[in-house]
Amino acid sequence: MRPRRALSKLLVEPAAVATGDIAFNLIVFFLVCASSQPDTGRRQDLPASEQTKQAEDKSKHIELALTRQSNVVTVNGEHVRMPDLPQRLRRLLAQTPRAEDKVVVVKSKPDVPYQHWITVTTLVQDAGAIITIQREEERTVTVGN
């Protein structure tokens, strides 16, 4: 009888001990990848703030007043509903031929939420205007006797 030759068995399956390590490393790798997603946002070009104000130029600009009410804004003193705002802005901006004159002055009440402000300024930007912020300044009025 022919003697049976002992077959040298090769280890073909991965070491079970390493599987845990590999799984852990993969989890950490994907965790780090997921946490490093870039921020998404919207660029806004604001003219550099200046202390000197030219009153005669300001009179030409479109004035947009915002209040806490999110469905209506005031354009040059006139109440405009939000859906009508893009059209109104385009009409007003069409009257100023030079691109650098297409300035919209945004005045907000102190209680205007950021979401409303972003929505409105996005519409202004999309209409092709430059945004300028005019802040309400606190004034102390002393009343004499």
Partner: peptide, 10 residues
């Protein structure tokens, strides 16, 4: 806040 047509920043 929410917005439209956003770009990624890095």
């Amino acid at each position: 806040a929410q917005g439209t047509r956003l770009e990624s920043t890095r």
